Computed example of a mutant assay.
Amino acid sequence: MQIELDRPTEATRIQRLKAMTTGTHDTLDKRIMRAEPFASRERYALFLDVQHHFHADVAPLYADEDLNHRLPGLADRNRFEALRQDIADLGGVAEKLAATTGPLTPAAALGWVYVAEGSNLGAAFLRKEAAKIGLSDDFGARHLAGHPDGRGLHWRNFVAAYNDLPLTEAEELEAAEGAKAAFRRVHALVDEIFG
């Protein structure tokens, strides 16, 4: 009698990308929590400033025709305007910001989009923290709201499209470097804005 051993399934593109960026991502998460962005509305306003700069960087990617061809519906996922409204809700002024990424290759751009979309999945926790200081999907925390179809489904649809992209191994590595650059950008913003 021959026993069939379960063979490990090959990791998906998203799983490989996550594995290549985990260290940079974890360092950023710890830095953000040390900044205590939900300790008060004043601290949260600083968090919105960080988010505003990062989303100004990725907003052009959400409008990019090639990326929308590769990831259908990408433009509809952009949270930049909701974020600007959150700033206004708290009495701030969402100044006009230009992207600071410079030209990105399509693969590197995919890495930046992965970070932005992943942050939307992680926003479920942040949304609960924002509620503790009186913020909601209708006031001050719009950009943290889940998709009407559900945050999990929205993420799974993105993952499916991302996993189906015809990328070479070199392009996957380039996407990982783009994602790491995006995480480092947010880390630098947290350091600069929170001090």
Score class of each variant (00 low, 15 high):
residue 82 A to G: 10
residue 48 L to Q: 05
residue 10 E to W: 06
residue 142 R to E: 07
residue 93 V to A: 04
residue 171 E to F: 01
residue 88 A to V: 06
residue 97 L to M: 13
residue 144 L to K: 02
residue 130 A to H: 08
residue 98 A to E: 15
residue 36 E to A: 09
residue 75 A to F: 07
residue 88 A to R: 12
residue 61 L to D: 06
residue 166 P to H: 13
residue 111 G to L: 13
residue 31 R to A: 15
residue 187 H to F: 12
residue 1 M to G: 04
residue 131 A to P: 00
residue 61 L to H: 10
residue 102 G to H: 06
residue 68 N to A: 02
residue 95 E to S: 07
residue 155 W to T: 00
residue 86 D to E: 05
residue 85 Q to H: 13
residue 11 A to W: 08
residue 185 R to P: 03
residue 85 Q to S: 10
residue 54 F to G: 01
residue 99 A to Y: 13
residue 186 V to K: 06
residue 19 A to T: 12
residue 159 V to R: 12
residue 17 L to R: 11
residue 143 H to D: 09
residue 144 L to V: 04
residue 106 P to N: 03
residue 29 D to W: 03
residue 77 R to G: 02
residue 194 F to V: 06
residue 77 R to K: 13
residue 153 L to R: 06
residue 184 R to M: 14
residue 94 A to R: 00
residue 182 A to N: 08
residue 55 H to Y: 13
residue 127 R to C: 08
residue 53 H to I: 14
residue 81 E to A: 11
residue 183 F to C: 04
residue 167 L to V: 10
residue 114 Y to E: 11
residue 91 G to S: 05
residue 130 A to W: 08
residue 94 A to L: 09
residue 4 E to Y: 03
residue 63 A to E: 14
residue 159 V to S: 04
residue 56 A to E: 10
residue 47 F to I: 09
residue 51 Q to E: 04
residue 113 V to M: 03
residue 184 R to Q: 15
residue 112 W to A: 02
residue 78 N to D: 15
residue 112 W to R: 00
residue 132 K to Y: 01
residue 10 E to H: 04
residue 180 K to D: 15
residue 100 T to A: 15
residue 6 D to V: 14
residue 151 R to Q: 15
residue 24 T to Y: 07
residue 105 T to E: 05
residue 36 E to T: 09
residue 180 K to P: 02
residue 81 E to P: 09
residue 181 A to L: 13
residue 27 T to R: 08
residue 122 G to N: 11
residue 184 R to T: 15
residue 94 A to M: 05
residue 57 D to C: 02
residue 30 K to S: 06
residue 38 F to G: 11
residue 112 W to P: 00
residue 98 A to Y: 05
residue 170 A to C: 03
residue 117 E to F: 09
residue 49 D to T: 14
residue 164 D to I: 08
residue 27 T to M: 07
residue 7 R to K: 15
residue 180 K to A: 15
residue 158 F to C: 01
residue 171 E to M: 05
residue 6 D to K: 13
residue 143 H to A: 13
residue 175 A to Q: 01
residue 76 D to T: 07
residue 141 A to F: 07
residue 71 L to D: 00
residue 114 Y to P: 02
residue 79 R to V: 13
residue 53 H to F: 01
residue 2 Q to Y: 11
residue 175 A to F: 04
residue 168 T to H: 06
residue 21 T to K: 10
residue 97 L to F: 07
residue 79 R to K: 14
residue 31 R to T: 14
residue 148 P to K: 04
residue 149 D to L: 06
residue 181 A to F: 12
residue 123 A to D: 06
residue 165 L to W: 03
residue 50 V to L: 10
residue 191 D to L: 11
residue 42 E to H: 05
residue 172 E to C: 11
residue 97 L to H: 03
residue 95 E to W: 01
residue 31 R to Q: 11
residue 145 A to G: 11
residue 157 N to F: 10
residue 65 E to Y: 04
residue 131 A to L: 08
residue 67 L to H: 10
residue 38 F to T: 00
residue 110 L to I: 10
residue 18 K to A: 13
residue 146 G to S: 15
residue 20 M to G: 03
residue 51 Q to T: 07
residue 66 D to V: 11
residue 133 I to S: 01
residue 176 A to M: 10
residue 44 Y to F: 14
residue 188 A to L: 15
residue 77 R to I: 01
residue 6 D to C: 07
residue 194 F to I: 02
residue 32 I to C: 02
residue 195 G to F: 13
residue 95 E to P: 00
residue 76 D to V: 00
residue 176 A to N: 09
residue 153 L to E: 12
residue 89 D to E: 01
residue 185 R to S: 08
residue 182 A to T: 09
residue 129 E to Y: 05
